[in-house]
Design a protein around this nucleic acid. Structure first.
Length: 424
RNA sequence: GUGGACGUAGCUCAAUUGGUUAGAACGCCAGGUUGUGGUCCUGGAUGUUGCGGGUUCGAGUCCCGUCGCCCACCCCA
């Protein structure tokens, strides 16, 4: 990698070359196939949104909004109120999906539960480290319009099935409930009361969290704090009856499809919009950034965004983190046939090759006029199953087609080649 | 934003207590008689040792700065 390069790419943003891009494509394909089985259709929302969407949707107090946004400067001539001139690169997509749902009045035009999946880049201005980039890719699912615990289970089931099909090593699915506006405030108060009593045993960061983001007290990694928090009041016993029932039902549905999440009462979420069910999938092989996917129910987000009361549930996963866990697949050959034509005049060969390509054959052809030996090496290196000797005197009707594995060589006309390869 | 490591050919690494033309494997390129690969053999190319400054007779080796990258914190996918 060149250092000190004047035109280098932006920090925390990667270039993906074909070999790796193929891995992304496989994940995407698998997602499209599976999610469509669940009746989900793809939704594509813009990479740029008004800042206020995330301030309102994700939450004013969250780090994502406070320090991780990529701002997009507005042009001077852009008119409108201030709020609509401030724009950012999206840090996540749930708020965008909810926004689109409201903006297009989907509840009126479509009716029923809306089931979407999305995939694409997200942007967060953070210091890069293992498993964390400034531009990263998420695949996510959002199911809007259903309050049913079965929908929670369905969303989790999709995620589970997806990850299961990728052989990623040991993954742990953790689940919890963060309650609702009815029962959560009471719990937070109880938690605060507890933490104030234990104030002396908490680290500096946690003392700050205590006031600003009480639920996040559980996220501290310091052993002292963890020890203290292990004694903290359990949100599970503070849940109101409807939340309690909801969770029981989710677990019941999950059990029915063979999924038994680990109930983790300390699991909270960093985004404000979650209600009731929250879950997270972690791997032990990812270093500090160990979450592969996370999500939950957000019954109030749509109405927060001036939409109709619309309960919803969804999740998203980080493709790069999944890729990190996936063993690199064996490289696939780029070509069926590689053409050996040392030149110098290759116009005829070029035309024939195009003829083959138009028949769907993947043909490799170099125009640099290298030696036969060099071209053969290349053919071998790129894994072509066949080589085709063209050019010079014998370029009229019959050309030689060599099977690279067996060494067999046959003489064919250009018209016969495509079929010969297809039948192999 | 905070802390800690690291930065030598395309890649992975080496270079005695600072000492003279900075090396190796792999990869790449070219050959090994006449247009046929994978193995083997021979030969070849590439580095302003990230950049800038300092100490020194002399620095890839030490010091400072800077940029980059990595890991961790914070936080999260």
């Amino acid at each position: 990698m060149r250092q000190n390069y004047t035109y280098r790419g932006v920090k925390g943003m990667r270039d993906v070359f074909p070999e790796e891009a193929r891995r992304y494509q496989q994940l995407e394909q698998r997602a499209r196939d599976l999610f469509s089985q669940y009746g989900c259709g793809e939704i594509r929302t813009p990479l740029v949104e008004h800042t206020v969407l995330f301030e309102r949707g994700v939450g004013q107090g969250t780090d994502i909004v406070n320090k991780e946004m990529f701002y997009v400067p507005a042009k001077d001539e852009e008119a409108g109120p201030d709020a609509l001139r401030r724009m950012v690169l999206r840090p996540e997509a749930t708020a965008s999906v909810a926004r689109a749902y409201v903006e297009h009045e989907i509840d009126k035009t479509a009716g029923g539960v809306q089931r979407y999946y999305y995939m694409g880049p997200m942007f967060r201005y953070e210091r890069p480290q293992k498993g964390r980039l400034r531009q990263f890719t998420q695949i996510g699912v959002e199911l809007l319009g259903s309050p049913s615990p079965a929908t929670d289970a369905e969303a989790i089931g999709m995620l589970f099935d997806y990850l299961q099909s990728l052989s990623l090593g040991t993954l742990t699915l953790m689940l919890n409930s963060v309650g609702c506006p009815e029962c959560r405030p009471g719990y937070i108060q109880a938690l605060q009361a507890f933490a104030r009593l234990k104030h002396a045993g908490l680290c500096e960061d946690c003392r700050a969290r205590l006031e600003k983001n009480t639920l996040r007290l559980f996220d501290c990694k310091k052993p002292e704090c963890r020890a203290v928090m292990a004694q903290a009041p359990n949100i599970q016993s503070s849940l109101c009856a409807p939340c309690r029932t909801h969770q029981d039902q989710v677990l019941l549905y999950l059990t029915g499809i063979g999924i038994t999440p680990k109930l983790e009462w300390r699991l909270m979420r960093g985004l404000d919009y979650y209600t009731r069910t929250v879950f997270e999938v972690v791997s032990e092989n990812l270093g500090a950034q160990n979450a592969v996917a996370a999500g939950g129910r957000y019954d109030n987000l749509v109405s927060e965004l001036e939409g109709p009361a619309t309960p919803a549930v969804g999740w998203s996963m980080g493709m790069e983190r999944i890729l990190e866990l996936m063993p690199a697949a064996a490289p696939v050959p780029m070509f069926d046939v590689f053409v050996v034509d040392p030149g110098p005049d290759t116009a005829g060969t070029f035309a024939h090759v195009t003829f083959l390509r138009r028949q769907g054959v993947r043909v490799g052809l170099e125009h640099e006029g290298r030696s036969v030996k060099a071209l053969m090496k290349r053919a071998d290196k790129v894994g072509a199953r066949f080589t085709l000797f063209a050019g010079s005197g014998a370029d009229t009707d019959r050309i030689e087609l060599k099977n690279m594995a067996s060494g067999e060589q046959v003489s064919l006309t250009w018209d016969e080649i495509a079929e010969h390869i297809r039948n192999f």
